[in-house]
Design a protein around this nucleic acid. Structure first.
Ligand SMILES: [Zn+2]
Ligand SMILES: [Zn+2]
Ligand SMILES: [Zn+2]
Ligand SMILES: [Zn+2]
Lengths: 156, 156
DNA sequence: GACATGGGTGTTACTTTATAACACCCAGTC
DNA sequence: GACTGGGTGTTATAAAGTAACACCCATGTC
């Protein structure tokens, strides 16, 4: 993700889509859940549950318990609004909620950004590899560590 | 991994290869590290660090500290003898140490076995997807959850 | 043999991440 | 108004991982 973009737009857009999706599904995007989603979207870097907890305490003055955040995150993940990055124990906003989520991420070691991609080639290759071994795919996880384009261009 | 196979052979083989690889590299596969490797290989299911710790305590009578196990695991991972399954916070023996490790796993939700595959198609697809976005790959992680062949055949 | 060197291990304490159990509240319904 | 169920608050606890520091022991050097 380019460092120079109107991120307030990313946030507003994510919240709007979340409102629409939840309304459509009859899922309850409560004030707390919406606020947690907003905090997850505070950047394109995956954010840990306890970091979000701190945000809640400091920005909202509410001293919430870990469970509060974890339950909100659980809901958001179920709704496909947020993805969990397993290799970081952290959460990041979904770029395309509503669409199919195969969950593929390019995670930059330098800036920390996690770019979600839904590359059909990768999905197809995984399906083929699994099928060849008689394995039935339920949930693929692809998290590629490396260096994003902008971090390669301005090294160090 | 078929439930019916001579697993003692898997273990013996893994230890033999580890001995050879470490000797070749001048890496010190100490008694503790070798023992931890053996415990990781106690099955084809990824095993958590604390589970291995318990094995050490119960089977060897040594009440080791967590760090002891984590340090041994760190060494084994560096040497490519063991892989960490990020989505499980657990470790599993490498099927082909010495070769290139892209780290692709088919993890069965039913029996827990993690089958390591090194599918060139998957690797190539990831490289292509990353290259198309200007991303330089350093360490890909692929962990596919689903049902292995034998668990599909004997459901429940 | 005495001595420095460095990697491996032991010990204690601590941080981070995640979940269990149970009570309460509040909107929607009959 | 009472019933119900999902969402939230509270407290306590489990699971996973790390920091700091001392000790040991094999190796190489003087
Ligand atoms: Zn943005
Ligand atoms: Zn970057
Ligand atoms: Zn085996
Ligand atoms: Zn299975």
């Amino acid at each position: 993700m380019s460092a120079l973009h109107d991120h307030t737009h990313c946030i507003a857009d994510a919240l709007t889509r979340a409102d629409a999706l939840c309304a459509e599904r009859g899922a309850r995007l409560t004030a707390l859940r919406r606020r947690v989603l907003e905090l997850v979207w505070s950047s394109h870097r995956p954010r840990g549950a306890y970091a979000i907890l701190e945000d809640l305490s400091q920005q909202d003055g509410k001293a919430a318990a870990p469970l509060t955040v974890y339950r909100a995150l659980e809901f958001l993940v179920e709704q496909g609004l947020v993805h969990r990055i397993e290799s970081l124990n952290a959460y990041v906003g979904c770029a395309a909620p509503g669409d199919v989520h195969s969950g593929q991420f390019l995670v930059c070691e330098a800036c920390g950004d996690a770019a979600e991609i839904d590359d059909p080639g990768v999905g197809a290759a995984i399906d083929a590899a699994a099928a060849g071994r008689g394995f039935r795919v339920q949930r693929p996880t692809v998290e590629v560590r490396g260096l994003c384009k902008s971090c390669q261009e301005k090294p160090r």
